[in-house]
């Protein structure tokens, strides 16, 4: 623990001498910057996807929870009668909190996305819709169906739950997948940085030998490499996050016509989350390089 704290102190305290002991050239520079940039970019997307899935699940859950629709298709002369009968059945059904017939204006608003605003709804054989709200305990849907079949032959009960539950489950799984992706991206970043750090340490074994010859401690040597890799990762991740944010900004938002579900952009305080990506990536690089450096230094002893 003390060794890690010493290294953290050395990494945070800039020492121009220590910064220069490791030769600056090498493919690991670009490998680290590019990898961390690409990973940060992907992390921003995974984060956006995960948060959007979460919103989607929540919105479906809230908006469609404990609601159903009763559709009555009947000849124009019987519509009012069947609607009244259906409402009566619903009133008497245990587990139904409320039921109300949608007005013409509400039905017109529902059809507007498909037929436009000037639909002459009165002259069309549009079924009457009844919104049914359940109590917490819910109703016996099979029993209700049988009763409706007997008393209101033109009624069809459409329960949202049937298609809502799998969709919510899918959205929740998508959200979990997003978080798993973020963890995998973090692990892959750590592995890549470890490989790059190992390559750099192996390529600089002579530098390490010279530093040991003049009395450098493991913390000093490790911090020279760790600081460099941490900074490169921070820079790469900052660039990747910035590009990711720009790309997410170009995605449809919740209010756009293209956002048929929820929109992939971050919303509200969620915009803060991507800004944690570069420091977290740097922390991963610090731990991965520190671990690699300690292992290599032990091996070279």
């Amino acid at each position: 623990m003390k060794a890690w704290l010493d290294m953290m102190r050395a990494v945070l305290t800039r020492d121009a001498g220590a910064d220069r002991v490791v030769p600056p050239a090498g493919f690991t520079v670009w490998l680290t910057v590019f990898t961390s940039g690409a990973m940060a970019f992907l992390t921003v997307f995974a984060l956006a996807l995960s948060l959007a899935s979460g919103r989607l699940a929540e919105s479906w859950d809230n908006e469609l929870a404990r609601s159903a629709t009763l559709r009555i298709s009947a000849p124009a002369g019987q519509m009012a009668e069947q609607t009244a009968a259906a409402l009566k059945v619903l009133e008497q059904t245990p587990g139904v909190a409320s039921a109300r017939a949608l007005s013409d204006a509400e039905q017109q608003a529902l059809l507007e996305p498909w037929f436009g605003p000037d639909l002459p709804i009165d002259s069309l054989p549009v079924p009457q819709l009844i919104e049914v709200i359940e109590t917490e305990d819910g109703y016996d849907s099979e029993g209700l169906r049988l009763r409706l079949q007997a008393e209101v032959p033109g009624a069809v009960l459409d329960e949202h739950t049937r298609w809502r539950r799998p969709l919510i489950a899918a959205a929740a799984k998508l959200r979990a997948l997003g978080w798993v992706s973020i963890l995998l991206i973090g692990a892959a970043t750590g592995a890549m940085v470890t490989l790059a750090a190992n390559a750099a340490l192996a390529a600089n074994s002579r530098v390490i030998a010279v530093l040991r010859l003049v009395g450098a401690t493991d913390s000093y040597i490790a911090s020279a490499f760790v600081r460099r890799f941490t900074l490169r990762t921070l820079i790469g991740a900052a660039g990747g996050t910035l590009l990711g944010l720009i790309a997410v900004l170009l995605m449809p938002g919740a209010g756009d016509a293209g956002a048929f579900l929820t929109g992939l952009r971050f919303q509200g305080l969620h915009w803060i989350f991507p800004f944690f990506v570069p420091p977290l990536a740097a922390l991963v690089a610090f731990l991965a390089t520190g671990y690699a450096a300690r292992r290599v230094l032990e091996r070279l002893d």
Binding site: D15, G17, A18, R20, V21, P23, P24, V210, L211, V214, G215, A216, T217, Y220
Partner: peptide, 14 residues
């Protein structure tokens, strides 16, 4: 990669 003066000063840095 370091000039002579920095090589000589290396023990000071470490």
């Amino acid at each position: 990669h370091l000039p002579v003066i920095e090589n000589i000063a290396l023990p000071l840095s470490v």
